[in-house]
């Protein structure tokens, strides 16, 4: 650097200039954080203790909303649906993403072409994914059951049978697995080749190399994909809402697809129970934080981080 030798500015003045400039550059974020993150978190905490319909001022009701939540069968249903979906979708999604990434990694020069094919569906707006779910997974005429029929399997009524609604949604979510595949593929390409050579010299076969070299080396990326996807699964909204819930005054709805955020959304914006919906939001916040914390704790034991790379 050698800047001390040339500069005429005193270090403290320079430090002050750095601080002023730095704070000036990050000031949009500071304002945004205070207004659109910090304040909403506290305010929704306050609202959750009130009865509020937007039209009249909030009236303080203490813990009433939380008591109501504990007794609300719809909350229990929504939580249960969301939990079932998450437990089903996350492992499926991560395993499929990993399998596709491993295959792509073996494909050599052709991998760019296939990567595109896996990524393109990710661009589809989730509303349109909801439409495709209704059409392709239609129990009677759908392409999925036609394909299953061709190999002698009698496909279920994916979109109407309550037992099959969540598996249908989980399968359709795989369609947007492309981003996770790209992340995992990038991690695979970062694994030092020498490690594989060493393992080969020691006589390790493909499966053993994958288990003892590949998986530990990409465990950071796997963990990232798992956490991000878990948070997303807990907030499942658009695909299920598009396919199974009517806006406005149409009333078709499917209890099996009543996910937590859908219930929150309807309580808040259809029923204008803003206080109650805020309490629902807080419960979701706590649940997601707990799950993420558990995942972090588990990752301490399972994830291998190569010392700071930068």
């Amino acid at each position: 650097m050698g800047r001390e030798a040339v500069t005429t500015v005193r270090p403290s003045a320079r430090a002050r200039r750095e601080r002023t400039a730095g704070l000036a550059f990050i000031s949009p974020w500071i304002v945004g954080f205070l207004v659109f993150t910090a304040w909403p978190i506290f305010y929704s905490g306050y609202l959750s203790l009130t009865d509020y319909d937007v039209l009249t001022d909030p009236s303080f009701v203490g813990l009433e909303n939380y008591e109501r939540m504990a007794a609300d069968p719809q909350v229990r249903l929504a939580l249960w649906n969301t939990l079932q979906y998450t437990v089903l979708q996350v492992p499926l999604y991560v395993v499929v993403a990993l399998a596709l990434a491993l295959l792509l990694h073996q494909a050599g020069r052709a991998s760019g072409f296939f990567r595109t094919a896996f990524f393109v569906p990710k661009m589809t707006p989730p509303v349109a994914v909801g439409v495709l779910l209704l059409l392709l997974f239609n129990g009677e005429y759908g392409l999925v059951n036609e394909a299953l029929g061709a190999i002698g399997i009698n496909g279920p009524s994916w979109t109407t049978d309550p037992d099959w609604v969540k598996p249908g949604l989980a399968l359709v979510s795989l369609w947007s697995v492309g981003a996770a595949v790209v992340i995992l593929l990038a991690a695979l390409q970062d694994v030092p080749v020498e490690l594989y050579d060493a393992a080969r010299v020691d006589g390790a076969g493909w499966w053993r190399r994958t288990r003892t070299v590949t998986l530990p080396m990409i465990s950071g990326a796997l963990f990232f994909v798992t956490v991000v996807n878990t948070i997303a699964a807990f907030q499942m909204f658009t695909e299920a809402y598009s396919a199974y819930f009517g806006a406005g005054n149409s009333t078709y709805a499917n209890d099996a697809a009543l996910f937590y955020v859908i219930y929150l959304f309807r309580e808040g914006f259809a029923e204008l129970h803003m206080g109650y919906a805020s309490a629902l939001a807080w419960l979701l916040f706590v649940v997601i934080m707990l799950v993420t914390a558990v995942q972090l704790l588990v990752s301490r034991r399972l994830v291998y981080y190569e010392g700071e790379q930068r």
Partner: peptide, 25 residues
């Protein structure tokens, strides 16, 4: 401060949905 930036990345959008609506309202 940057730690706070990273933390907000993990914040579920549903939590701030209603107060944010009230701001715009």
């Amino acid at each position: 401060l940057f730690g706070v930036v990273l933390a907000t990345m993990m914040l579920p959008g549903a939590v701030t949905l209603i107060p944010t609506y009230l701001i715009w309202h």
